[in-house]
Amino acid sequence: MDDPKTLVSTEWLEAHLKDPDLRVLDASWFLPAMNRDAKAGYAEAHIPGARFFDIDEISDNRSELPHMAAPIEKFVSRMRAMGVGDGHQVVVYDQAGIFSAPRVWWNFRLMGKMDIAVLDGGLPKWIAEGRETEDLPPMPRDRHMTVQRQAHLVKDVTQVAHASKLGDHEILDARPYGRFIGQDDEPRPGLRKGHIPGAKSIPWDSLLNADATMKSPDDLRALFAAAKVDLAKPAICSCGSGVSAAMIALALERVGHLNWSLYDGAWAEWGMYNDLRIATGEA
């Protein structure tokens, strides 16, 4: 079901593509091991009218951690320059299907902007269906944006450590299972292996169908149940650096579990400090 606050289909987007208050963002971002250039991919082909949202650049460059959420002033400035502002319905997609787009969905939610949806299946589905693309960026006009930061949608390391100790939240980890149990190395050098004590493994790709669309709400509920996730508890979504964690947040929203937040520092932070406890093996 199309929901312009969470997830919309390619059919929905094509039907609304010429709406004057629609804005489309290409939020592609890839891990180094994926060996793909998101900006080059955008320049080669993007959905008509799409602007490129640079997750690494539109971030807090004062932090040593990767692509932490941008300060309000920087976010508003970048969005205004991209012609994205008040009164707009935003649809965000990526070149992988669904991978990094939910991160930008969360970024907007963090700023109090609710009228944003992820494109189900992303650019690969759009292209596979023979829909139009272009290779020239649009010429945006400034648009005023009013934001109100929603602090409850983000957790810092102290809050996560407290939740881990008390067990009063479900900590859900989107990294591949081999990294979660401490069997596989982290892609970032110098990080310990394992997971936050008490966390449960929800690998990001387990949330998707074979065609990179998100599983149905019923299938997502079954997935959470199989992982013994207690949806009566508030959830904290985590991953390697705060990107794929947002996929869990989107999935939770799709099943009606609205009491969630995202650990922005993620394993890039937790795995760096020896004074933070870690767990390995089966959760």
Rank of each mutant, 00 (worst) to 15 (best):
M1R: 14
T6V: 05
V8M: 04
V8K: 00
S9F: 02
W12L: 04
L13I: 03
E14G: 07
E14R: 01
A15C: 04
L17Q: 08
R23V: 12
R23H: 10
V24K: 10
S28A: 13
W29H: 12
R36S: 11
A40F: 06
Y42M: 02
I47F: 09
I47W: 09
A50V: 08
I55P: 01
N61V: 11
P66S: 10
A70L: 06
A70D: 02
F75M: 07
F75N: 05
F75H: 05
R78P: 00
G85I: 05
Q89G: 07
D94M: 09
G97C: 03
F99L: 15
A101H: 02
R103C: 09
W106C: 10
W106E: 00
W106R: 10
G112M: 13
D115Q: 13
I116G: 10
P124F: 09
E132D: 12
E134F: 07
R141A: 14
T146I: 01
H152E: 06
H152M: 02
V157D: 05
T158D: 15
T158K: 14
T158N: 14
Q159S: 12
V160D: 10
K165C: 05
K165Q: 13
L166T: 15
H169P: 00
L172V: 07
A174Y: 06
P176M: 11
P176K: 13
P176H: 11
Y177W: 01
G182R: 13
D184G: 05
E186N: 11
E186A: 07
P189V: 02
P189N: 06
G190Q: 05
I196D: 00
I196G: 06
A199I: 04
K200I: 01
P203W: 02
D205K: 05
S206P: 00
S206V: 01
M214W: 09
S216A: 11
S216H: 06
P217T: 01
D218S: 10
R221A: 06
L223R: 08
F224K: 05
F224V: 06
D230M: 06
K233C: 07
K233G: 03
K233T: 03
P234V: 10
P234G: 03
A235Q: 00
I236H: 07
C237N: 12
S238T: 15
S241E: 02
G242S: 11
V243N: 04
M247G: 03
M247Y: 04
L250G: 00
A251S: 14
H257C: 11
S261Y: 09
S261M: 11
A266V: 12
W267S: 08
M272A: 15
N274Q: 14
R277N: 14
A279M: 09
G281A: 13
E282I: 12
